[in-house]
Amino acid sequence: MVDLAPLVGTDRREGVVITVTERDGTGHAVYEFVDGMKDFSEPLEIDLVPVSATVFAGTGGGAAFSED
């Protein structure tokens, strides 16, 4: 099991806000386009699957991520 606590939080970059949370021991991210990019897409809800202690694969992002 991966300790997600150090990774939980919000990161704001130009045009996007990425929020990482933990739900029942599973990582989850919301990738939101903001400012001038806000009309590119609805927020993407992504389940994070650990590959290693610091690397995750994302699923559930829809067509933007070719489904799974």
Rank of each mutant, 00 (worst) to 15 (best):
A53V: 09
G27R: 04
V17R: 13
E45V: 12
A57T: 10
V16Q: 14
T26H: 15
E32M: 03
V2L: 03
S66E: 12
T54I: 03
A5N: 06
G36I: 07
G62W: 00
T54G: 07
V16T: 14
K38S: 14
G27P: 02
F65D: 04
G60Y: 04
I18L: 13
V17K: 12
E14T: 08
V16E: 12
E22K: 01
D68I: 13
E32L: 05
T26V: 14
F40Q: 10
V30Q: 13
D11K: 14
A53F: 06
V51Q: 13
D24V: 03
V20M: 04
D39F: 08
G61C: 08
G25D: 08
S52F: 06
E14S: 09
E22W: 00
M1P: 12
G15C: 11
G62T: 04
A63Y: 03
P50D: 03
D24S: 13
D68P: 14
G25M: 05
T21Y: 00
D47Q: 02
M1V: 11
V2Y: 01
S52T: 15
E67W: 08
G25C: 06
I18T: 14
G25F: 07
T54R: 10
G58K: 04
V2F: 02
F40C: 10
I46Y: 04
D3A: 11
T26G: 09
Y31E: 11
R23D: 07
I18G: 02
M37Y: 11
L4D: 07
T19M: 02
A5M: 01
S66T: 09
V17N: 08
F40W: 11
